[in-house]
Design a protein around this nucleic acid. Structure first.
Lengths: 342, 342
DNA sequence: TTGTAGGCGTTATCAT
DNA sequence: ATGATAACGCCTACAA
């Protein structure tokens, strides 16, 4: 297969092409001031020797590590993370960047110190911040202070000159709520997400807007606080079902909590969706595999992660800053956990 | 906090300690031949300047990249991978190694070429192979050829001088089968795992041994092939339930397939565990969250990954090769998806 | 026990 | 448009 387990240096290429190493360097790094013919000759040699620049030498000399970090909340839904990993990895590798992962356990009072050490030790050039990392003010402040470019995936207001990827959570939540309303549900419970996550507010807002538009009175008891995890969804659903007039449908701010709600309902002998409709948010791998399959909202997470990594790399490479991305579209996925009120 | 975003070089430390850079190098790398007093003086300076050796320079000069790769099957069960990541990451970081992830999609006819490129581009010093990567002969052959040390997490025979981490799958499968037998089940269906995974054979062997020990006749129709994924579990369960004399219990070789079996049973209007008991293997995050919660087997995956990474690093650091690890213990977790035959 | 010189493969500077 | 040469920070000989 390969000539030899990689070895060719810039000198080999230069010799073979009959030029100096500096010219090779110019070509390899896409610098100007190389005659077209020369460039081609060098490129040819590069191919023939399957030359790969030595990253260590590059970094030592040029100051660029070509390493990007990805910090994430450890406890989190892995379906989301897996998509983020795949998306980011798929972009970084071909672009010649390494992606280093760093799980963090929240809440973490020393989070800035942890990130600082990570950034220094790994010589990070940039950082990808999947939700909810981009929602933490102290993290953003640290990165700005350290002047490390980052790309956040979270529904916050895009700060000028900063990369931010988001999708239309709110519109999707609105649609989902209207779906439930259309199915005849009069009392729709809502389980809020973790208050520190930007998405929580958006999803709640969509719910409220749908109620208002359809002239439903907002009933505070029908709204419960959750924290995006299974157990909190279970507890919140329990409170909802304990109500004198319990809702006939529950909209949870993510699928983990929706699964918890279904679990709780089952414990009480309720049938889904006969006695209770349940919908979630995220469309994780398991959303379609629990019984009944969950009505939910699918975000194009892989694409969002790809875009985040891509824009970050563009920035690191000094490319022109792209126009701010429009929000990505979410898609409502209707399955069997919701049904018409009979 | 930090004096300055890291900068001190070996020269700064040498000057401050009044020694040569070589002496500093010796101290930093724990080499012998340094007087105790001198060593302390150097260490002191290192601390005062919060000196961190420049990784790039180190690699360029010393040939060591301190990068470890982790290749995994992309489609795989997340819960397993998440534990593997956390375990390996938790060991690598403090030891001064970077862990680079590389998802692979199986089957992959060019897998050796992909791994070769990954190893070369990332300058890997070693590789961690979670299941089922360590079950692929061509992968092992490649790594041996390239002389890249690896640590495999899979139930294969430990080759001499190679690191292999495993747990007693077979014993656990045996226990689980006996549990079902003890519950009065006379016909126990079995869904085999992917034939290319080492664990599949072990788990099946445990099932057969339990049958034999309890003087159950082995009935081929009760054994179906699966591939560790939800759908294959669903299909296999369907065939079992189509039998003229269907089993009253099904043991699936992993939880994904067990979930598929439950799903299929539900579709047919069966009650779990009333009409059918179902057990799995892995205890993923969702095993306890589906309804009913799944009886399964828990492997200490995090510890196994930690051990794998730890032994690999020891090897890379030239430490004495540890004695081969004893298999890790699995634990049967009994939940509501299995019950006495009524 | 400690220090000196040379080189690792690139990029940057300054000529030409 | 191209090239010679000096960094970059560390480690491995080889001396002392």
């Amino acid at each position: 297969m390969n000539p030899r387990n990689t070895k060719a240096t810039i000198f080999d290429v230069a010799e073979r092409a009959g030029v100096s190493i500096k010219t090779v360097s110019r070509v390899v790094n896409n610098e100007p001031n190389v005659r077209e013919r020369t460039r081609n000759r060098v490129l040819q040699s590069v191919r023939e020797l399957s030359y790969q620049p030595n990253a260590a030498a590059r970094e030592l000399s040029g100051k660029r590590s070509r390493v990007i970090g990805l910090i994430y909340e450890n406890a989190q839904e892995f379906g989301y993370l897996n998509d983020v990993f795949n998306g980011a990895l798929g972009i970084c590798e071909p672009a010649g960047y390494s992606l280093l992962l760093r799980p963090l356990t929240l809440p973490d009072s020393k989070i800035t110190e942890h990130i600082r050490q990570f950034a220094i030790n790994a010589r990070l050039e940039g950082i990808v911040l999947p939700a909810p990392m981009g929602d933490l003010p102290e993290v953003l402040a640290l990165l700005r202070e350290m002047r490390i470019p980052f790309a956040a995936i979270t529904p916050r207001e895009p700060a000028p000159d900063e990369i931010n990827i988001l999708c239309n959570d709110e519109a999707a939540s609105f649609s989902l709520t209207e779906l439930l309303i259309g199915q005849g549900h009069q009392a729709i419970g809502f389980i809020k997400g973790h208050p520190d996550h930007g998405a929580s507010a958006k999803r709640f807002a969509g719910y409220r807007h749908a109620l208002k538009k359809n002239r439903f009175a907002y009933a505070a008891p029908l709204v419960r606080q959750g924290y995006f995890d299974f157990d909190s969804g279970r507890i919140a659903a329990g409170k909802l079902l304990d109500l004198a007039e319990p809702p006939s449908a529950i909209l949870a701010s993510n699928d983990d909590m929706a699964a918890g709600a279904i679990f709780e309902a089952r414990e009480r002998g309720l049938t889904i969706p006969g006695d209770l409709s349940v919908a979630g948010f995220d469309d994780t791998r398991f959303s379609s595999r629990i019984w009944p399959p969950l009505t939910t909202v699918r975000q194009p997470i892989i694409k969002m992660a790809e875009t985040a990594a891509g824009l970050l790399i563009d920035k690191l490479n000094g490319s022109a800053t792209k126009a701010p991305e429009a929000p990505f579209e979410c898609e409502v996925v209707i399955r069997e956990s919701t049904a018409h009120l009979t």
